[in-house]
Design a protein around this nucleic acid. Structure first.
Lengths: 126, 126
DNA sequence: ATAGGTGCAAACAGTTTGCATGTAT
DNA sequence: ATACATGCAAACTGTTTGCACCTAT
């Protein structure tokens, strides 16, 4: 049977609280503020656990590694700001979940990653 | 000045000849058929060179690593077959290159990756 | 009491780098 | 001749695993 440990509770709440996808090191850093002896292996193990429970979803960002966000059941995309390098969730773009593509490919799902500049960084530059 | 070596010519032609994006180990394996002593470091160095020359484009596939394809100037997407795990290029889906997204994000470019079953694998299963 | 979890260190996979040797110019 | 490229091994980064110790049940 599965246990409810301090580390699991804290890791889960860190991911839930933050408003954007976090990578394992970011998760570790936040959680360490509360549990200084926390190890990275526990973060990875807990990520896998939460993922298999469906509570967490991985978001892979080219050249940036894997980020994790609380699972949302609405289809959405991600935005990677090339200035601050944060990852944001984007609500948008109604697209069919399952669709046939040219060449007879049957797409069951897809990922879209936008790269650009977020509002914040765009204002700073002006 | 830059040199035209056997390894560079072979690596480039391997990527040009294959009809789909290849990862560094696939490139090494193909090129080794012709140049058995070729090392993986040379493959990586040549990839970087070709990329910086604009001849090669990287395609990052979640959970699968990075693949490389000859640069094409038409906007296109990729398809990852969950059965054979090959990566294919997909011509499709006219979408604006630069667009403002909800939330004030300015997208300069984006990547779309479809996951599903390719025609081939789909026929085999039937 | 004990099954399951943790932290640490070692192992791994993918990629990069240092260096002595090889080669295109 | 020499600047640049290669192959090999070592280093590095991100992730996983083995194991002795710890803890929720």
């Amino acid at each position: 049977m599965e246990r409810k440990t301090k580390q699991r509770q804290i890791i889960e709440s860190v991911i839930q609280q933050e408003g954007r996808p976090l990578n394992p090191l970011e998760i570790l850093a936040c959680a360490k503020l509360i549990l200084p002896r926390l190890g990275i292996a526990t973060v990875y193990r807990t990520i896998r656990l939460l993922e298999s429970e469906g509570k967490l979803t991985a978001v892979s960002i080219p050249n940036k590694g894997v980020y994790y966000e609380p699972t949302r059941n609405v289809h959405h995309h991600h935005f990677h700001c090339r200035v601050c390098h944060k990852i944001f969730e984007i609500d948008c773009c109604t697209e069919d979940e399952t669709q046939e593509l040219p060449g007879g490919f049957l797409a069951e799902n897809h990922e879209v990653i936008y790269h650009g500049v977020c509002k914040n960084c765009h204002n700073i530059k002006k």
